[in-house]
């Protein structure tokens, strides 16, 4: 029974990660074809071992070589990395003060504030992104409001620019930043700050020397939780971004749907995964260190 329980995460890993990964990897080594499915070779098990060998011999790295032949791909990866980095930074910039304020709020208010942060999850993510179209468009609420207050006389073009993408990502992923930071700040012993003050720190120094280092595990967790999905983000850039918003998620979509080139699309996906593995491993290590520190 215990062995069975121990096996659960491994089964999970194999079924939900390794098997799909293997399939995508296999397709990335195949060639495009006009057939069902639209690539070749396909594995024919009826031929037995020889069929398998024949299948293996037809796989090659051609698609990966192709990715290097056009600067579109590495530019898209770079641009995605840039957008992911900046979005994570902006999310942290907004999320930390929110989490801090929540953790400093009166105890009886905290569940309500926490609820407010989680509440948007009750609506479809897509609908919330669509709502931003209504807010940011030229005739949208934001422009109407700003023109009404007289701050601007001409409507701002925000929708369909990278600015809108950043707004959308920061908005969407904010709870993923707030919650881990809040969790670390909330369990922080208030007497630590008093101790810092007692030992000669000003409030500001105490914040930088005690609060910030102690919030680091939460900050790191939040940053990864934002950075990793943002890198492959497709929906937000395609709804809020402009035609020049270049992200690898969109390139992947085009390879898959417009070019119907599943093998090249799979290679793009494999490389994206390889790029993500580095931060994912760092994230895991951070979690591990925190766990040890808690013990």
């Amino acid at each position: 029974m215990r062995r069975l329980l121990v096996a659960v995460p491994y089964v999970w890993l194999v079924v939900l990660f390794l098997v799909p990964f293997g399939i995508v990897l296999k397709i990335s080594l195949s060639d495009i074809a006009l057939a069902i499915p639209p690539y070749t070779p396909t594995l024919d098990l009826s031929e037995g071992w020889t069929g398998f060998k024949a299948f293996l011999s037809q796989l090659d790295l051609e698609n990966y070589v192709f990715l290097t032949s056009d600067d579109l791909y590495w530019k898209a990866y770079l641009s995605s990395l840039q957008i992911a980095f900046l979005s994570t930074f902006f999310t942290l910039l907004v999320g930390f003060p929110v989490a801090y304020a929540m953790a400093r709020a009166a105890e009886e208010w905290r569940p309500a504030l926490l609820m407010l942060v989680i509440l948007p999850f009750w609506t479809s993510f897509l609908i919330r992104v669509y709502a931003w179209i209504g807010i940011l468009s030229t005739e949208g609420f934001l422009n109407q409001f700003l023109m009404w207050t007289g701050v601007i006389s001409e409507p701002l073009t925000i929708l369909n620019t990278n600015t809108a993408v950043y707004i959308g990502i920061v908005y969407t992923y904010l709870p993923f930043m707030i919650l881990p930071i809040y969790a670390t700040l909330e369990k922080m012993d208030g007497s630590l700050l008093e101790a810092a003050e007692d030992l000669g720190c000003s409030r500001m120094q105490a914040f930088w020397l005690v609060t910030v280092p102690l919030a680091m595990p939460g900050v790191v967790a939040g940053c990864f939780l934002v950075f990793i999905p943002t890198l492959g983000e497709f929906v937000i850039p395609s709804l809020l971004g402009g035609s020049d918003t270049l992200m690898i998620g969109k390139v992947l979509w085009e390879e898959f749907f417009n070019n119907r080139d599943w093998p090249v699309a799979s290679s793009v996906a494999i490389i994206l995964l390889l790029i993500l593995i580095v931060p994912i491993i760092l994230f895991q290590r951070n979690q591990q260190i925190n766990k040890e520190a808690d013990q």
Binding site: L72, D244, L246, E254
Partner: peptide
């Protein structure tokens, strides 16, 4: 498709 990407993103 490649031309289209160039048209849309300038790359």
């Amino acid at each position: 498709t490649r031309l289209w990407t160039k048209v849309k993103s300038g790359i």
